[in-house]
Each structure stands twice: as C-alpha cells, then as structure tokens.
C-alpha cells in the first residue's frame, strides 16, 4: 500500500509528554477526516503505548521515545511507538488483561484498550534492547458512511 504521508517525533520519557504525543498524532490523523470517536480512539491508544514506555521501559531513568505515524492510500493510519528501554520478557503475559508489573497505580488494561480501539496491534520486544508497538487503524470514509 502506498504511503501518502508520514511524521516522526522523538521526546524524553517525561509523563507530561503523554499529552503532547497523543495530541500530535491526532493532529496528523486529522488529514483523514476522522470522526470525533475515531480521533478519541487514536489518542487513547497512543496515550497507552507512550505511558507503557514511560512506566515500564524506563522505570528509573529518562530515555528516548519515538512515535512514527504513517498514512496510506486506503485511509489507514499506522502508528509505531518505540523505546530503547528494558524490554518485555513475556509479551503474551504483558498483553493479558489485568496483568501489570506497575503496582496498583496501573490497571493492567493498556494493551487490551489498544487492541480494542485499533484494528491491529503488533508488539516486538527484546529484553534489555527495547520495544516497538505498531498499531493500525483504518479510518472509515464519511462518504462511505452516508
């Protein structure tokens, strides 16, 4: 599928950047003329992925997080959130609902919400090397909906 446009942002793993990251991706996605619900879903999924980097990839340090968003000709949006942090030992366990290593400040529902709000979710991780979460969502054309 042809890539129509792309953007890449990189920032430090400070929690105040969660809002920046989801808003930046939502602004980029606005080119596809999404509904408010679709924009809300995209913002939520980005927020979950970036929060995971901040809480789990770099628990005791500051590190780099990159977010790459790509638009394709079929009105789909791909978002890749990458870190170079601790990595995930057991991806299956991490994706299971209610599983968390973050204590009672975390609900363990981050991956479940990303899965339910996006069409596809792929997680690649190497312990000690980092994690990349790639999510895809097709934006329904409003003309199709009519």
């Amino acid at each position: 599928m042809d890539e129509i446009n792309s953007v890449k942002i990189e920032f430090l793993s400070r929690s105040r950047n969660e809002s920046f990251a989801r808003t930046a991706v939502a602004c980029f996605a606005a080119q596809l003329d999404p509904t408010l619900d679709e924009l809300g879903d995209i913002k939520t999924a980005v927020s979950e992925a970036v929060t995971n980097c901040i809480v789990h990839a770099y628990p005791d340090s500051l590190g780099r997080i990159s977010v790459k968003a790509r638009l394709f000709g079929d009105s789909s949006l791909e978002i890749a959130v990458r870190d170079w942090g601790r990595g995930i030992e057991d991806i299956g366990a991490a994706r299971a609902p209610m599983f968390t290593t973050g204590g009672d400040e975390r609900s363990g529902m981050g991956f479940s919400i990303m899965e339910s709000f996006m069409d596809k979710l792929r997680v690649r991780s190497k312990p000690g090397r980092g994690t990349t979460v790639t999510m895809t969502r097709r934006i329904a054309s409003r003309a199709d909906a009519r």
């Binding site: 809300g40 927020s47 979950e48 929060t51 009672d104 400040e105 975390r106 609900s107 981050g110």
Partner: peptide, 16 residues
C-alpha cells in the same frame, strides 16, 4: 475531556 487506562486505576483504587 480525555481519559486512558490510568483513570481506570484511579477508579479501582478509590473503589477499594
């Protein structure tokens, strides 16, 4: 105006 799963943890903790 916006909430993610961090808000769920706030609710669950308050409920407990």
């Amino acid at each position: 105006t916006f909430m993610d799963s961090s808000g769920i943890a706030v609710l669950i903790k308050t409920r407990k």
